[in-house]
Amino acid sequence: MAFFGTVLNTIGALFLTHAIYSAHEHTTAFANTPLPLDITLELLVGVIILSTGIVISADKLKPIQYAKWAGQISQEGRHGEGKYTREGEEILSEGDPYAFLGLDGGIGGKGEGRRGFFDVKGKRKEYDEWVRGKQ
């Protein structure tokens, strides 16, 4: 779909440029005659094709209802959209904006907790136990 949008955009831009060039040439050559119909039509067709292309190649709309939007985040999780940082980490789609509260692990759950209160000792112990269990 993105490719189709780009093709339409290119064709539309070409038509539009050509129509504008023709209109300019026409007004310099015959200053006092009205614009011929074919130039007007080409301009209109160019604008319509370009608008269609822009609409088609636009990003998918996000849900405007909070519950639907949040439900989508929960159901689909975070997934990459094909963009990477310089370090090679993929930039993911948006996640739970309140994840920083660390309340999703439940009471006494094994979540990451809150960043400001990061329990480095506990996490290290958990990792050590895992390594020892594997050996």
Binding site: T85, E89, E90, L92, D96, G111, E112, K123, E126, Y127
Partner: peptide
């Protein structure tokens, strides 16, 4: 893979994910 992303680490990093 989403489990070993340094930019957006998962909300629960299990030991294998921490290693990765």
């Amino acid at each position: 893979m989403a489990t070993a992303n340094l930019l957006a680490p998962p909300s629960n990093i299990a030991p294998p994910a921490a290693l990765a």
